[in-house]
Write a protein that binds this DNA or RNA. Structure first.
Lengths: 189, 189
DNA sequence: CGATTTAATTAACATTTGTTCATTGATTGC
DNA sequence: GCAATCAATGAACAAATGTTAATTAAATCG
């Protein structure tokens, strides 16, 4: 629970009391590799902190499996749009590696939001962090070539890329696995 | 001020008192067409509600002018990443049409955040809205072709597209003006 | 209004990525 | 360990978008 507390203290509030309120609602759960954390069509009921592991966001399609995002250790993960809008999730969240999550459910978070001084701040910080991430992502998708996105990912998450199958990476970068192979070949030469 | 109040009541809080706290900090400003609302390199000091007009987000580059976003009437606009991280903005915000904004500055918003029960909720709602927008955008950039993005924009913002020069739309869609011309030609046939 | 500048269109060719399909390599489960 | 399955690579051709450059259309400014 150390990392989530560190995150909390850094971004949300410093006091032990605030931490006590929030952390009392947290539940520890494990998901083995390849298990579904959130299923498409179901409503997201949790906001989860990844203490250990990697997850991917994906949409299973008739022809192929579309991966559009990852989340790594020591960040929050959630089908956040489903969580916010209370509508069925448009995508799966799947454990790529064995995961340990600390999660708070929807109702408890609402309670925290409504009954404590720090509730909305937590929600604000999380939404702000997610927004900044998406902002960078948008820029990258518009401005960069697939090759640059791959090289960036390699330098930003070098140790983790090893664990992610290339077909997921390709999808995330916005290209087909064959094209990623082509790019990898170019680079290595 | 009607629309911003409507927005406030719908998404933030219902009480007259809360509205009074927030609205007392709001300042009305006008920006004529083509004027710079936020300049790249400067720090964003405001969170603004667009009562009237359209703005674009852009990065002036040596070779061309890169437009990556728009904001329309009755939504909030800000160099929000600069605002949050207190670092210089990486982009301009420019009025495409004559604009009327209601804005609150950084310090006042912090005050509202810290001194009222609704402060963080406002910030949370804004960040959540921005996040949902970016989420949709990411999906579109990964999954759709440029043609589909153009058609979607046409159907979602039909009356506003008229006012936006095509070179800006092209950039937003992720292609060159020449390619947009090609697509438009195809469609009209 | 006319002159100048800027935007949009078009075309020819280059580059990138997609598609299909075959082959090789790696994992998984018995 | 072996068979079966799934992942990655490679090649040939198709489709989409980029690049350059010329032309036309529209907007701006005196």
């Amino acid at each position: 629970m150390d990392n989530i507390r560190k995150y909390f203290n850094e971004f949300v509030a410093q006091s032990d009391e605030d931490w006590a309120i929030f952390s009392s609602k947290l539940e520890r759960v494990e998901f083995p590799k390849k298990s579904i954390i959130l299923e498409k069509g179901k409503r997201e009921k949790f906001l989860s902190f990844i203490a250990k592991g990697i997850v991917r966001f994906n949409i299973p399609k008739p022809d192929y499996d579309f991966t559009f995002g990852f989340a790594f250790e020591n960040t929050f993960v959630s089908g956040y749009d489903s969580f916010l809008t209370k509508t069925p999730s448009l995508y799966n969240i799947e454990a790529i590696a064995d995961c340990v999550l600390w999660r708070i459910n929807c109702e408890d978070l609402e309670t925290v939001y409504d009954s404590t001084s720090i509730g909305d701040r937590i929600g604000r910080k999380i939404a702000e962090e997610l927004y900044l991430k998406k902002m960078k992502r948008e820029m990258s998708l518009l401005e960069d070539t697939a090759k640059k996105r791959y090289l960036d990912l390699m330098s930003e998450q070098p140790q983790l890329i090893k664990y992610i199958p290339q077909k997921y990476l390709a999808s995330y970068i916005g290209i087909r696995p064959q094209s990623l192979s082509r790019i990898r070949k170019e680079i290595s030469i």
